[in-house]
Write a protein that binds this DNA or RNA. Structure first.
Length: 141
DNA sequence: GCCAACGTTGGC
DNA sequence: GCCAACGTTGGC
């Protein structure tokens, strides 16, 4: 299983909205960047993702999983861009802020730290475990 | 609201 | 195919 980080702006797509979509999930639309698209194309059903909010409070707030692999983004009239479907798995007991991630030496190599602009990023298993643990989930589902 | 970093576009 | 100009993103 692979791990990812999915970035969203809270005004556009919040954790609450994601939760409301339930276990069948929703399309992760609006990605218009090749690197991010390629990352989505590499996702497999069941892969886990960190749900990260940019904008106001920059933090990881929850865990999502891929429920449908890459397919055309229904919001894209050109047909060039893809999206995956993701469903909420669990909220982190407490959010992990960007500041906390930056302050943790083990997380220095995270793409989030090194390339903050990429909206869909790979995360290593070690990083995944660390962030979940910092969020109060020693054994993430 | 500003600015730095990055990605994309378009002219050559 | 290179590179300058531009636009966008996101952290602060």
């Amino acid at each position: 299983m692979a791990y990812w980080l999915l970035k969203s702006e809270r005004e556009t797509w919040s954790w609450d909205q994601q939760k409301r979509e339930g276990r069948k999930g929703a399309e992760w639309t609006g990605v218009r960047n090749y690197q991010a698209r390629n990352n989505m194309r590499a996702m497999k059903k069941g892969d886990r993702g960190l749900f990260y909010l940019s904008g106001g409070d920059k933090c990881v707030v929850g865990i999502v999983k891929v429920v449908k692999e890459a397919h055309p983004d229904s919001t894209d009239p050109t047909g060039k861009w893809d999206c995956v479907d993701v469903a909420a798995v669990a909220a982190l007991p407490h959010p992990v802020t960007l500041a906390a991630i930056k302050a943790e030496p083990k997380l220095k190599p995270m793409v989030l730290v090194k390339n903050s602009r990429l909206s869909v990023q790979p995360v290593t298993e070690a990083e995944w475990r660390k962030v979940c643990a910092m969020g109060g989930m020693a054994d993430p589902p």
